[in-house]
């Protein structure tokens, strides 16, 4: 058996290895290049008090979550109970970004499903969302005291994922400094 005739087999097995590994990956998940970078600054109106404004700079010195949601977003409803619980327990401040939504619809949604947010910023045209590279709702960003994005989650948060990944990061970031 000459070595050169084994080349196709070796190439194929390497390929199969990658394919096997690929089965475990989710091709639809796109990591954000913003992780590790300062969160884009924005200053917009608040949902419940349209005359008042919310600025990302207000959150300086705190570890917080920015949760992008909308009343038309079906999968947002999946993670909503978890967010309500987080809000009640006061684990971490959760700022909502109401994305491409109508004010009345959004308020109605909160009445029906509960309001987990400390503040809600409104982004009717999706301009803030665009700066954060939002391409689907819900999306959740973890931002540290210096205003740097530490983590991004696409799709509904699950309790398991929150406890396993986000919670340790939040504890760690809150302790440091």
């Amino acid at each position: 058996m000459k070595a050169k005739f084994l080349v196709p087999l070796v190439i194929f097995l390497a390929l199969a290895g990658f394919l096997a590994y690929g089965l475990k990956l989710n091709p639809r998940e796109v990591p954000s290049p913003l992780v590790g970078k300062p969160a884009p600054a924005f200053s917009v109106a608040q949902l419940q008090a349209p005359e008042a404004s919310f600025s990302s700079a207000d959150m300086r010195g705190q570890v917080w979550l920015l949760n992008v949601w909308a009343s038309w977003c079906v999968s947002c409803r999946q993670e909503h109970p978890l967010l309500v619980e987080l809000g009640r327990r006061g684990v971490v401040p959760v700022v909502g970004l109401n994305y491409k939504d109508g004010r009345a619809d959004a308020l109605d949604y909160l009445v029906r499903h509960g309001n987990p947010y400390t503040t809600i910023a409104v982004d009717p045209e999706g301009k803030v969302g665009f700066d954060y590279g939002v391409y689907g709702t819900p999306e959740t960003f973890l931002i540290d005291r210096e205003g740097v994005i530490r983590y991004k989650h696409i799709g509904p948060l699950t309790r398991e994922h929150f406890e396993r990944v986000l919670m340790p990061m939040i504890t760690e970031l809150s302790r440091a400094g």
Partner: peptide, 28 residues
């Protein structure tokens, strides 16, 4: 569905792997 992916990958490895081994054995 990952189960399908795994099954078909195993099938792929069997069919192609065996034939390329046969090739490496007989082709020289």
């Amino acid at each position: 569905d990952p189960a399908r992916g795994l099954y078909i990958l195993v099938l792929l490895v069997l069919v192609i792997g065996i034939s390329l081994t046969l090739f490496a054995w007989r082709a020289p």
